[in-house]
Amino acid sequence: MTTIETAAPVPARPRLGRVLALGVERARYEVRSYFRAGDAVFFTFLFPTVIFLIFAAAFSASGTVGGDRHGHGGISIAAYYLPGLVASGIVLSGVQNLGIDIAGERSDGTLKRLGGSPLPVGSYFLGKVGMVLVTAIAQLVLLLAVAHFAFAVALPGTPALWGRFAWIFLLSVLMSVVLGIGISGLPRSGRSASAVIVPILLVLQFISGVYFNFGDLPDWLKSIAGIFPLKWVAQGMRSVFLPDSFAAAEQTGTWDLGTAALMIGGWAVVGLVIALATFRWVRKDR
């Protein structure tokens, strides 16, 4: 056989400006698709608000948490649950919903078609970040509005607290998206995606103080939860939404935001490395 003489030119890397522009176009397309899929919006978008309503209503008669001996200065159960649900809303939007979404895109042919087009992988990732950011913000606004107006939960009163909220929120969204992309390779098919991904997140929510008072958990369980990011997102959100006196109930007796930043940032880096190393447009050929 004769050989083919032409040397392959090394393919140029896509220019950053183009990656960003197409990332914005992807985000626009993804957000519109998200809100068009009616059932997905109902179950995933409203989830934190629905859970909040259930807790707030179920425990509305149990008085306050964290007050002094005479019951003064405490906060309502609704206010107490709010930060945990804000945290789990972010992590569910990113890791769980996105992980299941991408696994589905891998089996229904979406990724195969995109992989045959000149869409840079970076733009695809950016589109997912944009989608999760928009849906997580919308979800948050709804949750805070319900908490504030229906259950009279006080929202943070100082710009400093909102500033703290902003960085924890953005860092958590970024981390959740890369972890979601990373975890999407775990299920072997789109059909098994929910069965594989949901339990992991459910366990994390239970041990990270979303549904239970974190302070009531045994120390060994707290230490396990401390390895994973959700505990730190929830703790960060407690530092924003709960009075400072509640910091005493944390493991170290402080909000420990430095460690929270390190842990969330660290998981974002781990997630990014996993996402870049394992993401494939199509399942690897045997």
Partner: peptide, 21 residues
């Protein structure tokens, strides 16, 4: 790379994605 893919057109065997768009 993507510059190469920009010069191709691919019509795969049928798939079922993007139903709501």
């Amino acid at each position: 790379g993507v510059d190469w893919k920009a010069r191709l057109g691919i019509v795969l065997q049928s798939s079922a994605e993007a139903g709501s768009v």
